[in-house]
Design a protein around this nucleic acid. Sequence first.
DNA 1: TTGTACGCGTTATCAT
DNA 2: ATGATAACGCGTACAA
Lengths: 339, 339
Amino acid sequence: MPSLNLIKIAKMAGVSRSTVSRVLNDHPNVSDDVRERVQKIIRDTGYQPNLSARSLRSRRSNIIGLVLPQTMDTLFSDPYFPVLTQGVAQACNQYKKTLALFIEGRDSDVVQRVTQDGLLDGFVIQSGKLQESFSDKLIDSNIPFVVIGRPDIPGQSYIDVDNVKGAVLAVQHLQRLGYRKIAHITGDMDTFAGKDRLVGYRQAMQDSSLGLDENLILEGDFGEESAYLAAQSLAKQGVDAIFVGSDRMARSAIQALVEAGLRVPEDIGIIGYDDLSPAIAAHPMLTTVHQPVREFGYKAVEMLLEKLEDEETPIRQLIVDVELVIRDSCGVRQRSAAI
Amino acid sequence: MPSLNLIKIAKMAGVSRSTVSRVLNDHPNVSDDVRERVQKIIRDTGYQPNLSARSLRSRRSNIIGLVLPQTMDTLFSDPYFPVLTQGVAQACNQYKKTLALFIEGRDSDVVQRVTQDGLLDGFVIQSGKLQESFSDKLIDSNIPFVVIGRPDIPGQSYIDVDNVKGAVLAVQHLQRLGYRKIAHITGDMDTFAGKDRLVGYRQAMQDSSLGLDENLILEGDFGEESAYLAAQSLAKQGVDAIFVGSDRMARSAIQALVEAGLRVPEDIGIIGYDDLSPAIAAHPMLTTVHQPVREFGYKAVEMLLEKLEDEETPIRQLIVDVELVIRDSCGVRQRSAAI
DNA sequence: TTGTACGCGTTATCAT
DNA sequence: ATGATAACGCGTACAA
């Protein structure tokens, strides 16, 4: 048990606590020989400054939070959250911050825990369902945060992907390939992601000669089951192509279609959304809208750190671009030849 | 900006710091009316005790770490880690601990960060590849920890699943169904999980009338690619059934088999390992060995907390049981009828 | 350049 | 039952 502290190191080096402290914090005003001597002792003893004391004194814990307000059950079955977490963790490593992970459970009052005095310097929060509005507590806790996804109250810094554009890209691609009856299986209509992708679908259909047919829109919830059922229904209905709200749902939809005797993409074209492995890996390779989720998490941390550096930094709202990744499930090979 | 502290609360209540502190920590020696009065003020002001100060004084941060020493790239593509994390997070919520997540990157010295003085009360660490042995630093940092998976040095508390038994269950099930040429695509041979499942496979084959044929063992690495290639090879070779080292690999193997013109399970039976969604969801439903990964993470935290309560608690080594979950890919329907 | 002394907010020990 | 007071380990203004 080391139980070392500044005093002991100071005694060993024959200097005062302050000097050791200065060495630790790279203060300029330390003579080179003293600095050397102290550093050697620090190395030899394996001394580490006590973080609690440091936090207390400096009012900086160097811990930042990642708050995932989804329900536990569905949280990690979609690769989105793991990848996001990875991005955040990567940034924390980079900037030498400790990452505290808060996953909202049914009972736990995450807000309470996140806003504890002296625990976090700030946090990144994934905006969840629309109805679970950000508690005012979060805001007037006065601890800085950045929202991932669009927040449901204005005046916050946030980072989001352009879901509308992504959907437009997907649908327009299907249109260009000559599909005429293009359906959409939506994501969760309680999320901005789900809603915005639907907006994009509607927009792309309306702006085309095909026009919008509300009957071709089936509501899903980002889960396998909903997509499976929707696809079954669409198989009976007979459509040319489906733009599905997420890759995970797309895979499930494809399964339903195949079981209904349809070939993808020969009989029906599919485009998903996310481009996160491993959902795209199976056959047929999924055409999908790529969101840079990892970079996203990374960037969110950087935005937060900026905010921490400069208290008066303006509110930033960053929309990250998306792009269509064309693989097999949209039938581009079969159709491009035909065109 | 609250910037409240004990003194201010004390003044407002007309008592001393000590009394407020006692109220906060549920000390018995406080009269009921004073307690009431102080609690009301605490509620009204929204006062929260400063955690840094608390940690400094009490030598307890109430933060516990989860250390995932895998490389970033592969980390979250397997559902194992997300689910494990979920279990750990759940336990932390339950016991009112803050969870700090450490994901080892290429450059970052996680050991250094994890063992910082005053940061963590203890941590749970996932044992990674065998060669990256636990640094001695971890051990003589003197901060308590529990290992998930078998540690490569003795004398540590750990929790593990019975990988050998799981493999035996799987292979024996295939044997009972009448398969004769039963192959194995292994997991990563640098992990205990991969090695132990191979041990179980060997054991089950040797103990049966079928005997062990080393040519039926193909090495994988828990990744899609390796399983795909191995399955292609086995398709040519012509085998009856394959016990695959993980569900994720099993899915990939099935894809290779189907593309080679084989039907699963009519032509070839498959059993995987893990039973974590969504790998099992697709068609055919995967027969697999269930590991209670979430409970696992939860339990690991409980073991750690025990250790924290009682410094002199004995080292515990807990082996969690596994069970076979029979679905479609093993061909039980086709074969049971035949038997 | 170095040392002294104070305060960060809390808990714990000792009186009263 | 309550209050004064001393730590916990560190950073820093100020003095030397």
